[in-house]
Design a binder for these strands. Structure first.
Lengths: 198, 198
DNA sequence: GTGCATTGCGCAATGT
DNA sequence: GACATTGCGCAATGCA
């Protein structure tokens, strides 16, 4: 046991965790949805680092490593808004016109957003469904991360064993080469003293 | 370039992403904080799977793989609460006494929670600071995940190369062994036909 | 369009 | 006490 198909189990699961992430899609969403900032306290947080989404998240993304890690600007700290903390996210249209000078003119949001009342049973149903989906998705992500870590550990282990095997083989090869060179010398002597040293 | 120290860079970063996670700490937090459920709609979601915290996250955690993936019970769907969706998380003390019959008697929350007004500048300051910390922590986590993935990919690559090297060495070894056996036979023949086949 | 999946974010609890 | 982690709900968006 534990001889050949030792890693395959975790690898299989790991591979299956990345179904079709190699698609090239054009994000082009640099605006991040300013409407969501009106939910609590409309902090103007552009946050240009966490914007990889979908495909760019799982690909190697070699350019991602140069992120400005220590650049977390305090998002203006404007606690003037949302003091009356009630019904602040009731309608998108009412708050978006406040941000109209900050929006690019080409990115005007559809103001007629079919404002769904938060009291409606349909809203609650949608929310609950989404909450369940979110929990499920996050569990999946957690599982995927765990699998990746396990996979890395197992690959590391296997690497060490392979390196050791290579060392063994190389040494054995050197030995045989040495023997052959000896015999070759003996052969060059045309039947000299046999069984000299080996 | 890309000949020998090819993997070390990512490995270095990857290793540095796991500073001291190997500590053994006793979680024992099975209650998950019932108070937080009173924030929106007190959904009774025990969610006993995502509770690995700290050390158990990075260890192999071999028992974690048997999680009930497809068990996402609809959390009671009680949209009766939080219909007046305004000021629902105004103060913990005011809402907690409403949920007191649902709390275990041994888990009576400290009602005197020094109820911080959400309008206070100190509260906003703390919130903003925590938001910054959260963003930073999540970026760190994203980075760590990316590094782990890259590490796994590089280890896989290296593994393939090592396997090929082993194949090479093995074949070379077999050849030499064959040669040696031939010469041994020749030697046993006491000076037979030299250079027969090789 | 409908429904689920992903993702960024803020909040609160909790850990360090 | 400040910062770091983490689970969660919300909203936007992606996707089938």
């Amino acid at each position: 046991m534990m001889s050949d198909s030792r890693v395959s189990s975790v690898i299989q699961e790991w591979v299956s965790s990345y179904p079709g992430q190699a698609q090239t899609q054009s994000p082009s969403n640099q605006v991040v949805s300013n409407a969501q900032m009106s939910q609590m306290d409309m902090l103007s947080y552009n946050h240009s680092q966490g914007m990889m989404r979908g495909g760019a998240d799982d690909r190697v993304a070699e350019q991602m490593m140069g992120l400005p890690y220590l650049s977390y600007p305090p998002p203006c700290l404007n606690n003037s808004s949302s003091l009356g903390n009630s019904t602040q996210h009731q309608s998108l249209a009412s708050t978006q016109q406040d941000f109209s000078p900050f929006l690019l003119p080409t990115l005007r949001a559809p103001v007629t957003k079919r404002s769904i009342s938060k009291d409606s049973a349909e809203y609650r149903l949608r929310r609950e469904r989404n909450n369940i989906a979110v929990r499920k998705s996050r569990d999946k992500a957690r599982r995927r991360i765990l699998l990746t870590q396990q996979r890395a550990l197992q690959l590391q282990e296997e690497n060490q064993k392979l390196q050791m095997r290579i060392g063994q083989l190389t040494q054995e090869l050197d030995t045989l080469k040495h023997i052959l060179s000896q015999r070759h010398l003996q052969g060059a002597e045309a039947g000299g003293p046999r069984e000299s040293s080996i």
